[in-house]
């Protein structure tokens, strides 16, 4: 069985480190990126199932990053992390194909729970793709 591999995108370096440690301790594989650009760069070379994306970042913001990810890697599921004032942009994110959103400050358990849901969804889709490919063959 394939294991969840996720990526955290946030401009807060310390948050990335700590959360990554925690997720690893829970036994999942995790990548971190300090900006939208870095995230896209890493996605190019590595397989990631779920991206947890902060909405408010310098440079490429959450929504731009989301659009880019969805355009290049449609199977990657994205969970938006938002402050209350950016709920509207979270709604935009959902329209642009995000899996769900979480309100800051979010518990790690919540993040993991949502990530696993997203992972499940992705696995279902991959399964369907496999079945479809089988039919063709």
């Amino acid at each position: 069985m394939e294991k969840l591999k996720m990526m955290l995108v946030d401009d807060e370096e310390r948050y990335l480190q700590t959360t990554a440690k925690l997720i690893e301790k829970k036994g999942y594989e995790v990548l971190t990126a300090g900006s939208g650009e870095e995230a896209l760069e890493k996605l190019r070379v590595q397989t990631v199932h779920v991206v947890v994306l902060d909405m408010k970042m310098p440079g490429m913001d959450g929504n731009e990053t989301l659009k880019a990810i969805k355009a290049m890697y449609p199977l990657v599921e994205v969970i938006m992390l938002t402050g209350h004032a950016t709920v509207d942009s979270a709604i935009d994110g959902l329209r642009n194909g995000a899996f769900d959103y979480l309100m800051k400050p979010a518990d790690l358990d919540q993040i993991l729970e949502k990530s696993l849901d997203a992972f499940e969804k992705r696995q279902r889709i991959e399964e369907k793709i496999r079945v479809a490919q089988m039919k063709i063959l």
């Binding site: 310390r14 925690l22 402050g83 209350h84 004032a85 400050p105």
Partner: peptide, 22 residues
């Protein structure tokens, strides 16, 4: 604006707390 900015450090504190707990 103030509240929004406070949320980020809170998020970090939460993660740190979770890490310490584990």
């Amino acid at each position: 604006g103030f509240a929004h900015e406070i949320n980020n450090p809170l998020q970090i504190i939460k993660s740190e707390h979770a890490l310490i707990e584990t």
